[in-house]
Every structure is written in C-alpha cells, then in structure tokens.
Design a protein around this nucleic acid. Structure first.
Length: 281
DNA sequence: GGGGACCACCGTCATTTATT
DNA sequence: AATAAATGACGGTGGTCCCC
C-alpha cells in the first residue's frame, strides 16, 4: 500500500474507473507519467474532490490518522509544496493550499472535518457508479466546474492596463505576486509571476488596439491574433496540467484512505470473529 | 563516453465544454 | 449561435539512470 502513495508512484487504481471506448485505456490513478503517455480518457470518472468531510469508522480513528502522517507525503502533498497539516484532538484537519482543486471557499484554508461515525456513507461525494448513472458514460466535469461546486473556484480577471496586488498578510504561503512593466516593450508588457517556474511571460497588447503598420495590416493582425491565441492556450495548458496533477493526487489520497479503512475493517472483522468463536478448552 | 529506456515537462492542435 | 476557456492527444526536448 505504501507504494501506492509514493510520489510519482505507479499504483493501479483500485477505483477501477471505466474507459469510455472500452479499449485498454488505463485508469486515472496511475502515475502522472502514464497520464502523459497514454490515450486514456478521464471521462466517466466523476470528480470526487468534494471530499470535505471524512467519515471514520468508530474503531478506525487511529488507523486513519496514520493515513495523514506527514511522512507519507503524497497523501497530503500537492504539486508545489507540502501542506501544513494540523490535526487536533477535535479531528479537524487544516490544510493551507491556495489555488487548490480541492480548495474551499475560505481562500487558502481548507477545513476537513473528520466525523466519527460508523456509517458506510463515508467519502460519499458526487461519484456515482455506472449503474447509478444508468450506464451512460459521461464526461468528467472540468476542473473549473469542480472548483465551482466546492465554492472555491473564483477566478479573478485582471482588466487590461490594471495591476492587482493581492495582500493577505506577510509570509502567506502560495501568495501570487504579479508585477507588470509596460516600458518599451513592443506590442505588450513583461509580466513577472512570483510563484512557480514560469517567472516571466509576454503579454501582447489588447486586441482592440490594432497594429497598423501600413502594408499587410490584415495579415499582421491575423498573425497577432494567432500569437495571442497560442499564448493563452499555452498558459491554459500549463494551468490545466497543474490542476490535473492536483486532481490525481487527490484521487491517490482517496485511494490511500480507502485502503487504510479497508484494512481497519478487516482487522475489526478478525477480532469480532475471534470474539464469537466458541472456546475450545 | 555512447546509447537506449524512462520520465517529466512543454507547446501546439483539435475537440469539448462553458459562457455570453 | 458565437466565442472563450478547458482539456485530450501528440510529438518534441532535456535530464537521469543503467548497461555496454
């Protein structure tokens, strides 16, 4: 089981999501590598990122705690950093992770409440079995939709020519800082982005400012539009990959928790069987 | 050191989905 | 319906590891 939650692990998905076309497309919870390489479709794998409430079996509290031990990084880690996790006696998990697919409405703070019940409705979320969907294969909702469903998917659009500075206090992990310079850059501005690897990118001028240069205006305009489209798509692809990786980690996390819970139940069943066995001596 | 296998990441295109 | 955004698919590149 540990291999399942290892960073970049190549665990087989026990959730066994079906593929859309019925061919040999692998399930989604394989490694990111296989995600990049295979023809897999994530259709029909309805997002389960609405896990904001973890329900533990009564006897499994200590076991499940082990699932979120800091040394099992991938269980609680995201693509960018290890999330600080505080577990109090009151079974509240606080996860600081901005821009998270599994983020809640409270900006950068996730609160996962662990409720001790014996219910088998644990981890109930938007995921339905194919039977529940009447066997109809549906495309998995977009990550944006997942975010919106969680109430944390607010996307800020910065109008052209303005600079937005986000201040959330000093030292807030994951705080994004944008610095824009318009000076002497033909047709656009350089934007510095303070988080992640892509620290700098080029932003062309707005579309409603035509690049009149005399000859070939139409051609240039078309080329410029194409450049803008490519730029936007490049950034969208980056963001999409980031979200996807986070989504995969979320699923892996869920698998780990379910595996652990399964083990707990097995142990519990064993002990109950022993209790029920007639004594032989 | 050279070469192959594997992995991670990227950019682009095509298509799907969401928004206006 | 038109447009924008999101995402799957594909091919390319660079890094690392291992074998010869």
């Amino acid at each position: 089981m540990e291999s399942m939650v290892e960073e970049n692990g190549s665990a087989v998905d026990p959730l066994s999501a079906g593929s859309q076309s019925g061919d040999a497309a692998p399930a989604i919870a394989t490694s990111v590598q296989s995600l990049n390489r295979t023809q897999q479709q994530t259709h029909h794998l309805v997002a389960s990122t609405s896990i904001v409430q973890l329900t533990l079996p009564t006897s499994g509290a200590t076991q499940v705690q082990s699932v979120i031990q800091p040394n099992q990084q991938s269980v609680i880690q995201t693509a960018t950093n290890i999330q600080p996790v505080a577990i109090s006696k009151g079974n509240v998990i606080l996860v600081s992770k901005p821009n998270s697919v599994i983020q809640t409405a409270q900006a950068s703070l996730q609160t996962l409440q662990v409720v001790e019940t014996g219910s088998d409705d644990s981890f109930s979320d938007s995921e339905e079995s194919p039977e529940q969907r009447g066997g109809i294969l549906t495309r998995r909702p977009s990550y944006k939709k997942i975010l919106n469903d969680l109430g944390g998917g607010e996307i800020t659009v910065i109008p052209a020519g303005t600079i937005q500075i986000a201040t959330q206090g000093e030292g807030v992990p994951g705080l994004h800082t944008l610095t824009m310079s318009n000076a002497a850059t033909a047709g656009g501005a350089i934007v510095q982005y303070a988080q992640g690897q892509d620290t700098q990118f080029f932003v062309p001028v707005s579309d409603n400012v035509p690049a009149y240069t005399g000859h070939g205006v139409v051609v240039e305009d078309a080329a410029r539009k194409r450049e803008l489209r490519l730029l936007k798509n490049r950034q969208a692809a980056r963001e999409c990959r980031r979200k996807k990786k986070e989504y995969i980690k979320c699923l892996e996390n869920r698998v780990a928790i379910l595996e652990n819970r399964n083990q707990t139940l097995i142990e519990e069943l064993k002990s109950l069987k022993q209790l029920c066995e007639p004594k032989t001596d």
